[in-house]
Design a protein around this nucleic acid. Sequence first.
DNA 1: AACGCGTGGGT
DNA 2: TACCCAAGCGT
Length: 387
Amino acid sequence: MDHFNAKSLQENLLEWFEANARPLPWRNRPSLYGTWVSEIMLQQTTVAAVIPYWEKFMHQFPNVHALAGASEAEVLASWSGLGYYRRARNLHKAARMVQEDMGGKLPTSRRQWQTLPGVGAYASGAIASIALGEAVPAVDANARRVLSRWFFDDPIMAGNLRPAQLEKMGGQLVVPQQPGKWNEAVMELGATVCRAAAASCEKCPVLDQCKAGLAGVALQIPPSKKSEPAMVIALATLVVRRGDQVLLLPPDHKEALPLAGSWALGRKDTSGLHQGLWNLPASPWYAGNNSTGSALEDGEFILTWLEKRLHLSKTEIACSRLRMASFTHSITKYHLEIRTWEVLLSNDWSWDNSDQPMCGQFMSLPHLLPVSKLVTKSLEMFNQGNV
DNA sequence: AACGCGTGGGT
DNA sequence: TACCCAAGCGT
């Protein structure tokens, strides 16, 4: 790396960052705790999505003591809609570890931070450099892309770089006097100028030291990896209402309905999905390229649920004013085609579940519970004439 | 090491 | 529109 001037690169980028840093809330009101929360939320998640969640979370749990004192359900409820819920569970678990094992004091070194669940190589470097001034790298996807472009104009070479090599390269460039500013500046450049699919090299403050940029091949570096097309899945959810209440299944609920044999085929194991969240009754997942056949399966699912679980009589089912709405929702590599069915029970309907353990509860305020977007969207379908 | 885990916005 | 991918981590 003697073909370029590291000092000039550092000065130019830091100067650019001074003038162009976005006024993000965790920058405007910096704290060790707030930095931690922001770094966890920002994992695989856009700044725009995080901002309102960070504001609400910091208001609700202003310090690690408050976070440790809250229940996991409260934390997950605050996180609802942001995705990757394991982050929230780990954040809460880590807060309790801080409270119980560290005397309520947040770690003061990268090494200590990395012992907490959910804080890995990147987050520990980011927290330690930004909030503690420790001269360590924080190499995320932005930094990996920026570093790759600075040093390589060959897509093959760049594609062969291991994360550890990039971390090492990043470590060489960290400005010891202001490591946090430097790491933030590299990421900010990647997020706003040196973007993956739309690099704006003409706006780059360090183009004169960038191999890929000077060669005009920035967009080819790093090479994008081909991904499998999303699998199309058919699925039904059930919105059972009694007055202003909705039937929800608790987080640990495991469906055990006596389903027809064909339902077991193509079923996805969803045990790791939406852990800790309340759910609507939902059919198993069926792989398929069209949803034309799902109405029949929906019917079997709904009847089974209403008869076996809720013990509704045929007369009650007939009077339940069934409505259906459909929508789509993507979860990682799955494209869900969802048909959601609303069942209206009378206000005085009472659940005869004396002969079996309770499998769900009628809740008035789902927004205070941890729920996924799958649930939120299903409920919203019946609020605005989408039926 | 490859995979699972959510969701929304940009192109 | 149908992708791509975004301040990763744990297993």
